[in-house]
């Protein structure tokens, strides 16, 4: 199988410019081809490897597409009930203050059923990292409307498009938590191009670094695609994301060093 991808004769240690982190468990991911989860998993594990904190990290996975994240990330992890990851992370960090603690959550988990746990963990200024994957849809349960589904966007429970008058508006959790004094670093990124993935990796590293400073929540929203839920090819989905998701969920830092970034009008 490997021969399909590279000529054996050039596979020498001196020729290796990049390799998969050892902190990714060697097993097939459960994600759809083209999904952003796998990329975020990889760069998260690269950060943990580079910081040499594999033994000092405790992660909390959600309910949603990434419910099995703990099977792929070679660190100690707990699987939370739907939406409750920030509550678990709160207690773990309080009782293990020298451990690096993060939650990994989707939009349904974080912005619908877990809104209270999310906002209050942020408002208490817990010294944790929250990684929030926003693909505007419930992926695992089959493409239902999420709190982040765009106005007019079709889903299996908004088959004629999200009507904001009856179904409510998309919730911008990242802008919301940036207002709270308990958050120290709040950013929104994506992983759909190598450049964007590098920026996301830097953001995750920054959020882990501030855990050492005990200054409050580090928050990374990753706007991602869901090509199967959106009924598109991966390439179409990335294009649709750029054209539709990014205008509503603009990429970039929202709060740095505890200060909101001024946005030019």
């Amino acid at each position: 199988m490997e021969e399909l991808f590279a000529k054996p004769e050039i596979r020498k240690p001196e020729n290796i410019v990049y390799k998969k982190t050892d902190l990714m468990v060697d097993r097939p991911l459960s994600y759809c081809p083209g999904c952003g989860h796998g990329t975020v998993h990889r760069i998260l594990m690269e950060v943990i490897e580079e910081m040499d904190i594999q033994g000092d990290t405790i992660g909390v996975s959600p309910v949603g597409c990434s419910v099995l994240a703990y099977d792929f990330l070679d660190i100690d992890m707990l699987g939370a009930a739907h939406g409750r990851a920030p509550a678990l992370a709160t207690a773990i960090k309080r009782l293990w203050p020298h451990r690096f603690v993060f939650t990994y959550q989707g939009d349904g988990d974080l912005a619908a059923i877990g809104t209270a746990e999310t906002i209050h963990a942020c408002n208490r200024g817990e010294n944790i990292t929250i990684i929030f994957i926003n693909n505007g849809i419930y992926g695992m349960t089959g493409g239902q409307m999420a709190p982040t589904t765009l106005p007019g966007m079709r889903s299996s429970t908004s088959p004629y498009g999200r009507d904001v008058l009856t179904m409510g508006y998309p919730l911008k959790m990242t802008e919301l938590v940036a207002q709270l004094p308990g958050t120290h670093y709040v950013t929104r990124q994506s992983v759909h191009t190598p450049g964007n993935a590098r920026k996301t990796k830097k953001a995750i590293r920054k959020a882990f670094d501030i855990q050492k400073e005990k200054k409050g929540v580090g928050w990374i929203e990753v706007v991602s695609n869901c090509n199967s839920g959106w009924k598109m090819t991966p390439v179409q989905a990335n294009k649709w994301m750029e054209d539709n998701m990014f205008p509503f969920y603009p990429l970039g830092d929202i709060k740095v060093d505890g200060k909101l970034i001024e946005v030019a009008k």
């Binding site: 405790i58 909390v60 707990l78 939370a80 009930a81 409750r84 509550a87 678990l88 992370a89 709160t90 207690a91 773990i92 309080r94 009782l95 293990w96 209270a116 746990e117 209050h120």
Partner: peptide, 17 residues
Amino acid sequence: AESEVASINMIYGAAGT
């Protein structure tokens, strides 16, 4: 905690460690 839902899940997290 902010609710009993949160407090039992804090217990779950802590007990898991």
